[in-house]
Design a protein around this nucleic acid. Sequence first.
RNA 1: GUGAUUGUAGCUCAGUUGGUUAGAGCGCCAGAUUGUGGAUCUGGAGGUCGUGGGUUCGAGCCCCAUCUUUCACCCCA
Length: 456
Amino acid sequence: MKPSIPKGTRDFGPADMLKRNYIFDTIRSIFRTYGFDQIETPAMENLSMLEGKYGEEGDKLLFRILNSGPVLEKIREGKNDLKQGDVTEKGLRYDLTVPFARYVVMHQNEIAFPFRRYQIQPVWRADRPQKGRYREFFQCDADIVGSDSLFNEADLVSIIRDVFLRLRLGVSIHINNRKILAGISEVIGERERIVDITVALDKMDKIGIEKVNEELAVKGVSENAIIRLQPIIRMHGSNADKLEQLKEVLKNSTPGMKGVEEMETLFGILDQIHPEANEHSYPANIELDITLARGLNYYTGAIIEVKVADQRSQFTSSICGGGRYDDLTGIFGLPGVSGVGISFGADRISDILDEINGFPDFTTESTRVLFANFGNEEAVFALKMVNRLRDEGISAELFPDAAKMKKQFGYADGRKIPYMVMIGSEEMKTGQFTLKNMESGEQSHVAWDELLHVLK
RNA sequence: GUGAUUGUAGCUCAGUUGGUUAGAGCGCCAGAUUGUGGAUCUGGAGGUCGUGGGUUCGAGCCCCAUCUUUCACCCCA
């Protein structure tokens, strides 16, 4: 039997775990300082909680779990009267936001709103794996539900800055607003085509303005509308400049003007909190980007996306995204609760830090001292010493077999254990243990007190 | 879902137009050194060439299918 794991999944060895925990710990500690509480939800949800929440494409990418019971046999027997519910009624979670919405509705009576929660768990998508794309990956989400205030958006942007400053990774934080996109569609006379328009706009920095116009035409957007769109998408200048221009362009669109007003408020706050972070400032500029669309269709207000902007990295896809969703809990029966949140893609961040050698040195030793094993009697004595050291908070281990010294020293070498202690019959008699510094090769005879002193 | 790409020892990879018994480096094991590692030297083990079919006198190499790897599109963290 040749061992294997499913496509798009990975094992994480001890070295990988150090990297992953470094990212998780950084993000988690920042979430905490912003007052977020942690929750977890099950890996699987009832399919009815997931289907229809991520658009047509998302439904295709859901991992569905085969029902237990006699379903498989029925399928093998070729019974054709099976309904979907007979075959599958559960699925692996696709993101953390929808399960969170479900959680909020189910636990609404226990929650003090506004509720700030964070969640770090894996999600699964039946996508074709490729660069920066896995079938199992971790998201680190922070959401605030039960408050319309734009101070929440400002907090989330601050979190993003803190995280990437701490990780020493240059990024660009793009912010837009769904209402502005709606307004643009409206004023160019293509209100119904907002989805096609935003999907095309989103590709601007990837395929360029010509190809975007082509795609718009293919999708059936009128030539006139495309012409009227040009000055809008070519808009440039400072964030304040863009907002002024948008005010003029969108003056006949009620939602559009609402979006501009929201962005004015948000950027007003951000300008005061992060006066140095505007326009093109390294390492984390904040930019109003009207070509930013984001795929998830539940966003209604601000949308946020973070891209790497670091000379050391070639990575282009987004590493963090989020936005405001006015009525996510509505579909689960709790209308009128607004939420806003962000999600960090831990695996992509890890890939990038790998690429740029951005991880710190993880020199943390796992075992401080290894006791050699010279046979049963000596080993039992050594194990007593090992346990006394453990009681002192020093990580110690006994080599389990009375193998050759060459083998035991080789093991200490491979594990990068800094000290070895040898207790043979002579040492047992005298109470003077042989202590060896594995790096310098120095060897000395020490009693218990001295041993403890050196190792501490 | 569409289009490419990859698979040979534990790992990284050679392997000529199809031609005897498929190689190297690293790692592993043993010995030189029976209580001393990271260096060196000597020797050794380890392969149904992803899997299943096919073409051929003969296939690691050619053909088909399938799985897997990586990448682009779609979409996304």
